[in-house]
Design a protein around this nucleic acid. Structure first.
Lengths: 148, 148
DNA sequence: CTCATTTCGTTAGGTACCAAACAAATATGT
DNA sequence: ACATATTTGTTTGGTACCTAACGAAATGAG
């Protein structure tokens, strides 16, 4: 963010988000995996096969964005994308054997959240979340208004 | 962010940042301008001609990223990029006439910050900033360590 | 049943971000 | 002076994000 916003919430939201993502990317780079790709694998490893359209909601992405990420994972042979029986529009995603193997070798990323927020007063964390949540809600309202 | 982080600070930092940027992008779209392009024009309009290498620090971007954004603005004829006399490596950026004209026609984006944060207890804002700032600092420390 | 609508995924085109590697110009150390 | 950094900007290749537009399949209303 620019100079005017140096001390603003939105400026720090950006910096914080990018710093966290950079650390995630750096940790995953040796495994040739991006952060959003990791989230997809995480979902499939943790909750089993998932419909692509549900993943859109779970990961809070646009259909088009997820489509690209999934294509990359399929190309790498980590994920299987198959038409799901009943509804021929939907795709079901699941880990391949290679995907399971890679997942088992991946480092635990929990240290990132820990490093960032451990030791901070939980009351302060709650306030920070409330502020960000409020601001996000208002912004999304404004975004919606124009579209309707 | 994924389901596990639904209530985390980092998850909301991401959402808040993207919501703000989306509103900015939507407002600027009729003028065929991206958010980071706007920040560059803002700097040049507000503080006059600026060295590209300083802009890297002011906007907190990588050299490579700024290089691309500037190339786009030059291609659009909004910004002039010239070698700056003394040091033949450096480039100085300034608005062209077309750039000045466009800037004068652009809507005021202040309403975005206002909409997001007005009416929120300043003490809470300060806490949110402190939390994000602390987390960012710790993450950047961790990022740095690996590189040294 | 049929036509209009909605849902789901993809494609095309664009922005913004990064790391790594390169070239050119300048600065530094001996 | 001269070889070795360091700084500045670009290029290349990759990720992640968006909108708009499209096609195919399913759903709904008449």
């Amino acid at each position: 963010m620019s100079g005017t916003e140096v001390s603003s919430v939105s400026g720090w939201a950006k910096r914080c988000f990018f710093a966290g993502r950079a650390l995630m990317d750096k940790t995953l780079r040796p495994h040739d995996l991006g952060s959003t790709q990791w989230y997809v694998l995480w979902q499939l490893a943790t909750n089993g096969p998932t419909a692509q359209r549900d993943l859109v909601r779970i990961l809070d992405l646009e259909r088009a964005t997820l489509s690209g990420v999934v294509a990359t994972l399929v190309r790498k042979g980590l994920v299987d994308q198959s038409a799901s029986g009943k509804d021929q529009r939907q795709r079901t995603l699941q880990l391949t054997e290679a995907g399971k193997k890679l997942w088992s070798e991946l480092p635990d990323l929990h240290f990132i959240q820990d490093a960032a927020f451990s030791g901070i007063d939980p009351a302060d964390l709650a306030i920070a979340i409330r502020v960000l949540q409020t601001a996000t809600g208002r912004l999304q309202d404004l975004l919606g208004k124009g579209t309707e």
